[in-house]
Simulated assay, not measured.
Amino acid sequence: MTTLYHNPRCSKSREALHLLEEEGETIEIVRYLENPPTHQELRQVIELLGIKPIELVRTQEIEWKKNYKDKKLTDEEIIDAMVENPKLIERPIAIKGTHAVVGRPPEKVLDIL
């Protein structure tokens, strides 16, 4: 089973979902804008991705530019910002077992199969 952090309004996220479906993958869809991850859940996703929290932030979002861009934030504060404002989380994120990828481009989600 693959877990997909998904935003149905995002074309890249929809494309990633379609690719996984074409592969016959069983998918658990997490609509993270409606049900934001907790701090600990997001921390675990970041660890699976093997990245720093800032690498998961959509830094071009107005919310980021307005409230966080010029601040010196710790990793924990960056995670808190994404939990409080889930639209700051890069998408889509696919997780299978102990492997995770950000689907940019969407074909990257196939790397975990």
Rank of each mutant, 00 (worst) to 15 (best):
P36D: 06
T3S: 11
W64L: 04
R9F: 15
I112W: 06
V102L: 08
E22T: 05
I27A: 01
Y32T: 07
Y5K: 12
D75P: 06
V83T: 04
T74D: 08
N67S: 09
R43S: 11
V83R: 00
E41A: 06
L48F: 06
R43C: 08
E76Y: 10
R31I: 11
P36Y: 13
K87V: 08
G103Q: 02
L113K: 10
E90S: 05
D111N: 07
A100H: 07
E28D: 13
L19R: 08
N67G: 06
E77G: 05
K52A: 14
S13L: 15
I46D: 02
L48P: 04
L42D: 01
L110Y: 07
W64N: 03
V102H: 07
S11Y: 14
V102M: 08
W64G: 05
E25M: 11
I54Q: 05
H18R: 15
I93L: 06
T98I: 10
D70K: 02
V45S: 10
R104S: 03
H39G: 05
E15Q: 15
E34L: 11
E77T: 04
L73W: 04
G103D: 09
I78R: 12
D70H: 09
R91S: 04
P37G: 11
V30Y: 07
D75H: 14
R9T: 12
I78T: 03
R31M: 11
E23N: 09
A81I: 02
P106F: 13
K66Y: 02
G97P: 00
E28W: 14
H6E: 08
H99V: 13
T59D: 12
E77Y: 07
V83Q: 01
I112L: 11
K71R: 10
K108N: 12
L56H: 03
L73Q: 01
I62N: 06
I51V: 15
T26P: 12
I29V: 15
T3Y: 06
D111W: 04
E23P: 02
